[in-house]
């Protein structure tokens, strides 16, 4: 793989000050773009004859990913996330994109009977997944739970762009943000390359989506990271369409009395899920779809396998 060039991106479109993406040539008519986003190493593989289009597509995709990252980041003061949380207990109007994400979160909340809840982010304040055995106090969790619950939001699906956020509550799009960014990047690239023949794979730290088969008719071969040995791929998955997403807790957990507490928290009990699989990978038409199913599978704990097999969706699981 040869480094061709750096793709300079205007600083105004790089609010989080990432290094510029780099463009690599893999083969003739096959390119890879590497960049950072959402604390992951991301790459875009594009097979296409027209390098100028590849560059244009990569540029737009990276800008899109950085835009999403910045927009919903919890660590910024000048973004949409901060703006939403600065207005509590009053009706505010959400932009189109946030509205659509809220609609999605609503469906996910109801479909999972409350197990997926974007208001549960603040529970993390009670949990420190450092591999130690320090479980939080029950009272701490109870306290935090008063500010958790999708149903407590002033939000109604018939008027989805109006939100009243009760003081103390927090919305966390982090659980779906990376998958959403992957899908959006693929969309942006596809659009730019729509007039030509191409094959695309977008990968952000294991959450990935492709445009279809490779130009030679073969599937993309994707390695799923093993739990114990992060350097060696465990499963090789052949992906010819759609997307993959992986959820897991291989690096973040608590261990007490031989029970492994995963970093996945049940928003109803406020308690960490025990006996969850180490990692779950799911294939679905879109990355956000794969991501939410894999997250829900983790939340099933011991029932994860049964849950996944009942869905009839391709999946790979390791304990």
């Amino acid at each position: 793989m040869n480094l061709l060039e750096e793709l300079p991106i205007d600083t105004s479109l790089n609010p989080s000050n990432h290094p510029n993406p780099s463009l690599w040539q893999v083969n003739e008519n096959s390119y890879q773009v590497q960049f950072e986003c959402m604390a992951s190493d991301c790459s875009i593989l594009i097979e296409c004859k027209q390098i100028d289009l590849v560059k244009a597509a990569a540029n737009s995709a990276v800008i899109e990913a950085w835009r999403i990252e910045h927009k919903f980041s919890r660590y910024q003061t000048d973004n949409t996330f901060a703006e939403i949380h600065s207005k509590t207990d009053i009706i505010q109007t959400l932009d189109d994109e946030t509205t659509q994400l809220m609609i999605f979160a609503d469906h996910a909340y109801h479909a999972s009977q409350g197990l997926f809840d974007i208001t549960s982010g603040i529970l993390r304040r009670g949990w420190h997944f450092d591999g130690s055995n320090n479980l939080p106090e029950t009272s701490t969790i109870k306290e935090l739970l008063t500010n958790v619950g999708w149903a407590k939001l002033g939000w109604d699906p018939s008027n989805p762009n109006q939100l009243t956020l009760p003081k103390g509550m927090e919305l966390d799009f982090g659980g779906i943000g990376k998958e959403y960014a992957v899908d959006k990047m693929l969309l942006v690239i596809r659009k730019i390359l729509s007039q030509t023949t191409s094959a695309i794979l977008v990968n952000c730290g294991g959450d990935l989506a492709c445009s279809g088969k490779r130009l030679n008719g073969e599937s993309w071969k994707v390695g799923i990271e093993a739990v114990n040995d992060q350097t060696k791929a465990k499963h090789i998955v052949a992906l010819s369409s759609g997307a993959l997403a992986t959820s897991g807790d291989s690096r973040r957990f608590l261990l007490k009395d031989g029970i492994r507490y995963s970093h996945i928290l049940n928003p109803i009990t406020g308690w960490a899920i025990t006996d969850a699989p180490r990692s779950v990978t799911v294939a679905a038409p879109t990355c956000i779809n794969a991501g939410i199913i894999s997250t829900l599978a983790l939340l099933q704990g011991t029932e994860a396998e049964n849950f996944l097999s009942s869905l009839n969706m391709p999946h790979w699981l390791s304990r």
Partner: peptide, 14 residues
Amino acid sequence: FPWMTSMQAKYKDQ
């Protein structure tokens, strides 16, 4: 046409 191509690719496995 491009749309049908992408649908076929995306939902083939389903």
